[in-house]
């Protein structure tokens, strides 16, 4: 069964400055939805509104058509990867896996660079490994949807390719909403891409659409 997460009629102002006006976005299980936009266009704000950690003047967040308030209190519905590291640095890798009830062997098999690292503290990992671990727990922990804010940051090209492959496999289990500045990688993995511009979302299909909307210059 396909589940649908919709964010509709979202309006956000900071003082007199309107950031988002009448935004619509749809995310489905089994698909990866990409969200592009220049700095300051409100991508992270939009994610925080969907999550319920940022209040907006108007919004309707629906899961399967039912309005869902405070979705952040329901990790079985939506998990969130913020753009910064969120795992407490004093924790060991094994503790993190235990907390999220994920078997370490699966993780090791998927990302062999973590072999014999289960007793290491998270802050002893490299930036890329730390990010990989965070993406893994968000993608693997059972939930209907996951929002990833700049997942490719701190990752080297090989790690990015591995994560892209991993996300393509994991989308069978949930719906992803991903935003990142590395648009080529995002376009590679996404089934649907929205461009956030002038406070509105524009559904894009090709790289030419991004050019036409002024996000990139071909």
């Amino acid at each position: 069964m396909t589940h649908i997460l919709e964010a509709d009629g979202i309006q956000l102002e900071f003082g007199l400055r309107r950031i988002l006006s009448d935004v619509y976005l749809k995310c489905e299980t089994g698909k990866i939805t990409g969200l592009l936009g220049r700095n300051g266009q409100g991508k992270s704000c939009l994610m925080n509104i969907i999550l319920g950690t940022l209040n907006s003047s108007s919004n309707s967040i629906r899961v399967d058509g039912a309005v869902t308030g405070n979705i952040r209190k329901h990790p079985e519905l939506l998990l969130y990867l913020p753009q910064f590291n969120f795992i407490p640095k004093s924790l060991k890798v094994k503790q993190v896996m235990d907390d999220f009830k994920l078997p370490y062997t699966d993780f090791e098999n998927r990302f062999p660079e973590f072999t014999a690292k289960m007793d290491q503290k998270v802050n002893q990992l490299s930036g890329g490994q730390w990010r990989t671990l965070e993406i893994y727990i968000i993608a693997k922990t059972p939930s209907l949807f996951a929002m990833l804010d700049e997942p490719f940051t701190h990752l080297n090209p090989i790690q990015i390719e591995k994560i892209k492959e991993f996300l393509q496999q994991e989308k069978a289990n949930k719906g992803f909403l991903i935003t990142d500045h590395m648009y080529s990688h995002l376009l590679d993995v996404s089934d649907t891409v929205y461009l956030l511009k002038d406070g509105k979302t524009h559904l894009t299909k090709t790289i030419d659409d991004l050019d036409m909307l002024g996000y990139i210059t071909l």
Partner: peptide, 15 residues
Amino acid sequence: NNKQELYYYQNLGIS
């Protein structure tokens, strides 16, 4: 001081 780490607890269902 631990604002970022609160997302860890939030993802585990603890507000």
